[in-house]
Write a protein that binds this DNA or RNA. Sequence first.
DNA 1: GTGAAAGCGCTAACAT
DNA 2: ATGTTAGCGCTTTCAC
Lengths: 339, 339
Amino acid sequence: MRRTKQAVKIQDVARTAGVSVSTVSRVLNGKVDVAEETQARIQQVIDQLGYTSSLAARSMRGQKNNLIGLIMPDIAYPFAIEVMKGVNQAVAESDYDLLVFTTGDIRKYGTASQEQKYVSLLNNSITDGVIIAAPAAAEFSSEAPIISIDPLSENPNYPAIHATNYEGSREAMRYLLGLGHRQIGFIGGRPELTSAKRREKGYRNALEEAGIALDETLIINGDYTTETGFGCARQLLERENRPTAIFAANDQSAIGVIQAAQAMGLSIPADLSVIGFDNITDAAYFDLTTIDQFISQMGYQATKMLLRLINGEVLEQQIVKMKTCLVVRGSCRSLMHLN
Amino acid sequence: MRRTKQAVKIQDVARTAGVSVSTVSRVLNGKVDVAEETQARIQQVIDQLGYTSSLAARSMRGQKNNLIGLIMPDIAYPFAIEVMKGVNQAVAESDYDLLVFTTGDIRKYGTASQEQKYVSLLNNSITDGVIIAAPAAAEFSSEAPIISIDPLSENPNYPAIHATNYEGSREAMRYLLGLGHRQIGFIGGRPELTSAKRREKGYRNALEEAGIALDETLIINGDYTTETGFGCARQLLERENRPTAIFAANDQSAIGVIQAAQAMGLSIPADLSVIGFDNITDAAYFDLTTIDQFISQMGYQATKMLLRLINGEVLEQQIVKMKTCLVVRGSCRSLMHLN
DNA sequence: GTGAAAGCGCTAACAT
DNA sequence: ATGTTAGCGCTTTCAC
């Protein structure tokens, strides 16, 4: 590798080609008013010297760089990876390139003000727009467009992609009811969370909608851990009239439910249907092998929205809610993976 | 979200605080010679205005940004993801942040000269050093350090992390021989590749070393696809004196071997040991559940090396060859995943 | 068709 | 302790 101590700059190209910097700049930016011959000569010098214009300098002149940013605290996390897959795909289909910014660790990431810093870092200089995943801040100031992938807040102050709790929950229940289930256990937890409340509400309303009397004893609250999931499931499954399906309101509990079922020699979904709710995306996931795709979809949609904003389009829909309704097939591989 | 049309700059802070830009700059950069009181006032204005200094402008002044870059054609690919995990971890442990550059698709990525462009893009402006994965170019010119994660070339012209073919292959064989295997099939392919030749050489030499006569009929060449892997394995396993282990020289063939074994009712590793070679990393992988970790390790090591270069250290070892020797345990989950 | 020069936001001498 | 100013490499008027 050659470590040219002094990077070649536009000046060098100009001097070598015997023209002024502005002419080189014109060639660089594909301006038309340059003589065919000059153009060729300059291009040759550029290739010969291996010149690349400085991103920093170009950005400072307020140029569009055809570059979008994605900000994540940590890119080794399954959620992050799936988001990146989706964003990557949308980027591949566009003529933009992508810059993923990360600190490597949520603990290094800092608070909302730090986050704002990352946004400005990219968006006020080199990037034409930014996607921010699971934002901590409620507001951002930025010259260029911002989209968030926000699994938590119901109504963020910025354009966002997020998943649903209430809707997803109802659809999950409708699915189970459609399968003929009438005794459906619900394992909740963390009642202080809005998302948790909405999940339970979906459960209740779906039953009501189906004209099924609510059995309050079928609702048990754990604390969203695998352990309580296991315990609650055990409790439900040891009943005289045991439920034929269990709806666990978060991913950890769902793992516990599956473990409990296995421990009792029940097979899924033959003896028991299980539905889990992902705690990260707040998406209902029923088919544990496709939850990853769902998260990717969030990334994909976010990117598409951002590119439209960059192109000056006005979004008819600022907040996109993604619903998903998939089916458990018994494996808990992805579920574990999500953990 | 507030979209401040005009980003707040150092001038604005200076004016608001009633000081000069240089004083603000001093505060920004933690210089000591600023009056306690001025310092506090300026900091307050900074917070109030939500000011963040422009990455572009700062970079142009040749500042160190505590930022490293990672360049990959596509970040949705398993190899890329594992590399990122490793890099991410090293970044998390450091006080650097990370910028991953990608085009989203190898087809958009272009050729070596394009690649050189990406390197300059980051390294000659905003980044303090760059890791380039699976480089196409043989040489780079850059002001800041470069490390490559290079699974292909044996002796690149730049500091690199790569995996071994010959060494890995021999270790794999030694492992199998150590288990008592004497009839070991080898499924090769793509003899035009240097890497393929070296893998086969490792196979041959390990046998020789162990004083075992080479049975040429145990060596079959496919074309590195699952189909031929299946066919070749079938052929080997239907022999009178069937091998007790099969060494597949690439990942696709290994999948084929596993499928063939399953189709014939053989269980792995009870009836048959299988070794696969990953086509991406050229790393021998024996434990299919940990190959991902191996790739991550490459990313991790690359990052550690880069950070040392950035700090001006001289590497005693420019090329780090990573050997791995792990064991098949029968699952082919990761293998499939690698595909 | 091409060049000269201003200025993007910032830092680092150099003044005071 | 603070202000003034010269660039960093580039694009973009405005001249010629």
